[in-house]
Amino acid sequence: MDEVAVPRLLTGDLWTGNTMLEAAPVPTISGVLDMDRTWWGDPEADWTMRMARAKQDARLAFFDSYGRPAETEAGMWRRHVYAVRHLGALRLERHRLGNDAGVRDSYPLVAEELSALTS
């Protein structure tokens, strides 16, 4: 965790529905909405980063503009910590919505991330 020297503002829920786009030849974000999940921290801890990496598809273009974080051993370890945090938040949301199967499905995913922290 010591590798993170400067915290950044994290939106916690950045996606197209929470952005205002300026009419331009290249879409430009001119505003960000729904900031109730905002906090300060490592950019890698933001939900947006997790979702940008979730599938090897067009969403990886996010990093073309944002920039690609350095792939360090410590950074990869932190990603597992952040994954556990995100999975915990998802578990709570699934519980709130009465999604018992989703809650059950989260346990092996958390176990996998936790085992990666100790290997």
Rank of each mutant, 00 (worst) to 15 (best):
P25R: 15
A23H: 14
L117Q: 05
T38I: 14
W40V: 09
P108W: 00
Q56W: 13
S119L: 04
A5H: 11
G75K: 12
W40G: 04
A70T: 00
R68F: 05
A24L: 09
S119Q: 07
E93V: 02
T72V: 01
N18F: 05
H86M: 08
D100S: 03
H86S: 08
M51S: 05
D100N: 07
A61Y: 04
L10M: 07
D42M: 07
A111P: 15
P108D: 05
L117W: 03
F63L: 07
T38G: 06
E3R: 14
A83F: 15
L33Y: 08
R104F: 00
T38C: 12
V26I: 11
Y82W: 04
R59D: 02
W39R: 12
D42R: 12
W15G: 15
F63A: 04
R79S: 07
A45F: 01
T16S: 15
A52L: 01
L33R: 13
A24R: 13
W40Q: 11
A74S: 05
G98T: 02
R94N: 03
S119T: 03
D36G: 06
V26S: 13
G75W: 06
L92M: 08
L109R: 15
L87C: 02
K55C: 07
G88E: 03
L97S: 05
R8P: 13
R50H: 08
D46V: 09
G12R: 03
G75F: 03
R96A: 10
W47Y: 02
Y107A: 13
A70Y: 01
D13R: 11
L87D: 02
E93A: 14
L9E: 02
L60I: 12
M35C: 15
R85I: 12
M76H: 11
V4W: 00
H80M: 07
L114H: 04
P43F: 10
S106I: 02
R37N: 14
P69L: 11
M51Q: 09
A54M: 04
G102C: 01
R68W: 07
V4Q: 07
R37L: 10
G88K: 03
Y107E: 11
E73T: 12
P7I: 15
N18M: 06
R91W: 05
D34W: 04
V32D: 11
A83V: 11
A23W: 08
D100T: 15
M35W: 11
H80I: 00
P7L: 13
T38Q: 09
Y82T: 00
A111R: 08
T72I: 00
L90H: 03
T38A: 08
R91D: 06
T19Q: 15
W77C: 13
G102T: 00
L33P: 12
P7R: 09
A52T: 01
A45I: 00
Q56V: 01
M76T: 05
G67K: 00
L33D: 12
